[in-house]
Design a protein around this nucleic acid. Structure first.
Length: 332
DNA sequence: AAGCCGGGGAC
DNA sequence: GTCCCAGGCTT
């Protein structure tokens, strides 16, 4: 296992990667702008989320919230609704908190890694991505794509779930970085990971780095990563209808989907079970969930509070629902 | 260091 | 159906 390569080898790979990227790069919406706000929006959305999923959200978001100011002044409900279905909703709140901070600080992002890292929702990856792409800072990104490319090039067996491995890979990414054009270089490594150096069935034969790649004959062995086992879970949610309205609740803080709307869990102590309506599968963190939706009636009076309401179809359209519950609406 | 937070695409 | 993916924050 190699821990790195001499600068001469990195220089050759860097050059081939850049040449490849200039001819093969995808024409993505956030590659047509130099607006730091728009680039920041794209990087928040791209955390844990694939390009094809992000594109329509990005386009709508920039129309609805075109500037830091617009986002800072928006209602939180509108922000969450615009994020509906994208997942990891904390990103949306962090992005709005970031917008408020930027506006307070004069409307511009800080031009240093340290300054970026101090902002809400910005960790090592986003600081390097926004810093290099929007501000031209010489910071090497280390995301899943980059880790996959680098562990394969070096045939590195270290477990990428471990912090020391991340630190080692960060040093290697720093050595690989093109300090003259960090923006293009970072995007090129990630583009390679997303389109050629794929998790499964990598296209090593057409890879611009194949001449220097130590792991290319057994690319699918990399990266090595330990993972926690998933658990199966079955849950039942209740569809309580009143005329054309449905009983829904807004998830409180501290629970998954907090702030979004959903159908309530079926509670046998308070509800009478009726006919089954649908089975919807979804996964959340380490759980693989089968969600069974059933018709139900209250045994006693329905509980009332500010976070539960009988919603009309129009209201259900306007409010942000957790994705599996949004799917359930289609069955009603 | 480990656990929490979603959703979709590939096979 | 099953597996895979992975950045930031909290504890």
């Amino acid at each position: 296992m190699k821990s790195s390569l001499p600068e001469k080898k990195w220089a050759g790979l860097r050059q081939r990667l850049g040449d490849w990227y200039r001819s093969a790069r995808r024409n993505l919406p956030w590659r047509r702008t130099t607006d730091p706000y728009a680039i920041t929006v794209s990087e928040f959305m791209l955390q844990q989320t694939q390009v094809v999923t992000v594109i329509p959200y990005y386009e709508r978001w920039l129309k609805q919230f075109p500037t830091w100011d617009a986002l800072a002044g928006a209602k939180e409900g509108a922000v969450i609704k615009a994020w509906e279905g994208l997942g990891y909703y904390r990103r949306a709140r962090s992005l709005q908190a970031l917008a408020k901070t930027v506006v307070e600080q004069g409307g511009e992002l800080p031009r240093s890694e340290e300054g970026l890292l101090a902002l809400p929702g910005i960790g090592p990856y986003t600081a390097a991505a926004v810093g290099s792409i929007a501000l031209g800072l010489p910071l090497a990104v280390l995301d899943g794509n980059v880790m996959r490319v680098l562990t394969r090039v070096l045939a590195m067996n270290d477990d990428i779930a471990r912090a020391p491995t991340r630190a080692k890979l960060q040093r290697i990414a720093n050595a690989f970085l093109d300090k003259d054009d960090p923006s293009t270089h970072n995007q090129a490594v990630m583009e390679l990971g997303a389109t050629v150096c794929l998790p499964r069935n990598p296209m090593c034969l057409i890879c611009p780095l194949k001449s220097g790649c130590i792991g290319k004959t057994r690319a699918e062995e990399f990266p090595v990563k330990s993972r926690t086992a998933t658990e199966k879970r079955i849950e039942t949610v209740a569809v309580l209808r009143h005329g054309s309205r449905y009983y829904c609740e807004q998830v409180p803080a501290g629970k998954p989907w907090h702030g979004l709307w959903r159908f309530p869990d079926f509670d046998p102590a308070r509800m009478q079970k009726g006919e089954p309506i649908a089975k919807i599968r979804y996964s959340i963190t380490k759980y693989a969930v089968i969600m069974e939706a059933v018709e139900a009636k209250w045994k006693r009076r329905a509980p009332v509070s500010s976070s539960v309401r009988y919603l009309t179809p129009v209201e259900m359209q306007e409010l942000a629902f957790a994705a599996p519950h949004r799917k359930l609406i289609k069955f009603l």
